[in-house]
Amino acid sequence: MRSGTSLGRVRGLGSSKEGAHHWWQQRLTAGSNFLLMLWLVVSIARQPAFDYASMRFWLSSAWVALPMTLLILSVFWHFRMGLQVVIEDYQHDESRVVALVLLNFFVVALGATAIFSILRIAFGAAA
């Protein structure tokens, strides 16, 4: 960054026009997380047993597989944005870029594994 006056340093940089978008999506997914996590907590609490056959039967229902897929999408998008803010608060040099790239890899790899696993059970593929 060039070393001019304070005004000169900020002129033309401005906001990146993404702040409000990020802020709103964080709230939007907070709302959907609230509904979906309430569903999961109630559904788990009402489960009669947690053995392999019972849990396969539970997750093979469309009434579980669909909200579970939505939960993964909503929760993972929410925590991707949340961890982004945490990284931006504490990492100030090049490590910030590395951490943000790793965060994206982490979220996409984990989310894809989760959704693939749900669909594999829901579509009845043999284990």
């Binding site: 392999y52 849990m55 396969r56 997750l59 579970m68 984990l110 594994t113 696993s117 284990a127």
Partner: peptide, 11 residues
């Protein structure tokens, strides 16, 4: 994700 993948992976 471990729970989901383990459940999908078999007994």
């Amino acid at each position: 994700v471990w729970f989901l993948a383990a459940l999908a992976g078999g007994a």
